[in-house]
């Protein structure tokens, strides 16, 4: 089988499993909306200045939502012995990483595609059409980093005694650089800052993505094989 086909097969498997139950995407979406409600109630007063804090608010919700999804995607694999099945299948080991990573990227992006409009409506924010493009591009770019680091670390954490409790402890400190850049980029877009600043943050996110894609790809084989 060609590499692309093998990766596609894994993604297809995850999508089909999700389509059958729809439990993950719906739970993730509900989680994001609930997080927004919690924020609005917890920080009611300062939300008048939402242009500046809105970016951070969105990212906190997205990060925690992504951990929810990442854990889910491997609990299935582990509990139902799917990972062993994947390992025994004729798929090249390193390609398993790309398959799982693309699946996670897809689910994250789908949930966020629904969550972003809800966020803008709930917090009465507006964005021009050209800005909306850059905004979504930033989110997608960050998703690549979240999915790469997350896929690697959630595979590790699911194999520990504490399982899903382990993921935030490993994932959050590693994702902090990306969070800083993403908050700075989306915050800059929403408060109408100069685009050069925004592009600088986006460039950093791209560099982070490339570095961790390579690192996670190189290390993934050592996680899954004894």
């Amino acid at each position: 089988m060609a590499a692309g086909k093998q990766v596609f097969a894994i993604v297809k498997k995850d999508v089909l499993a999700e389509l059958r139950t729809k439990e993950m995407v719906i739970a993730m979406l509900l989680f994001v909306i609930l997080a927004m409600v919690v924020f609005s109630q917890a920080f009611g007063v300062i939300l008048n200045d939402l242009d500046r804090v809105g970016g951070g608010l969105l990212w906190v919700a997205f990060l925690f939502m992504s951990m929810l999804g990442l854990n889910r995607s491997f609990v299935h694999e582990k509990d139902e012995g799917c990972l062993e099945g994947l390992l025994m299948s004729p798929i090249d080991r390193p390609l398993i990483f790309f398959g799982k990573m693309l699946g996670n990227l897809l689910f994250l992006s789908i949930v966020e595609l629904f969550a972003v409009p809800i966020f803008f409506v709930l917090f009465r924010l507006e964005l021009g059409a050209s800005m909306a493009g850059i905004f979504l591009a930033t989110i997608f770019l960050s998703n690549v980093g979240i999915a790469s680091v997350g896929t690697l670390l959630s595979t590790i954490s699911i194999n520990t005694k504490t399982r899903d409790l382990m993921l935030p402890i490993l994932f959050l400190p590693v994702i902090i650089p990306l969070l800083i850049a993403a908050v700075s980029a989306t915050g800059g877009i929403m408060s109408g800052e100069e685009l050069t600043e925004v592009y600088r943050s986006m460039r950093f996110i791209a560099v982070y993505d490339i570095i961790f894609l390579l690192v996670a790809y190189a290390l993934y084989d050592y996680v899954i094989s004894e």
């Binding site: 690697l152 850049a181 700075s184 570095i211 050592y222």
Partner: peptide
């Protein structure tokens, strides 16, 4: 041993990135 080694690599890669990211912001 494997997980420890893997995480020590990820963490070492992340140190300079965190440092650069800190300087991006206001």
């Amino acid at each position: 041993a494997r997980f420890g080694a893997i995480f020590s690599i990820i963490a070492a890669v992340n140190v300079p990135l965190t440092f650069v990211a800190g300087r991006l912001d206001s």
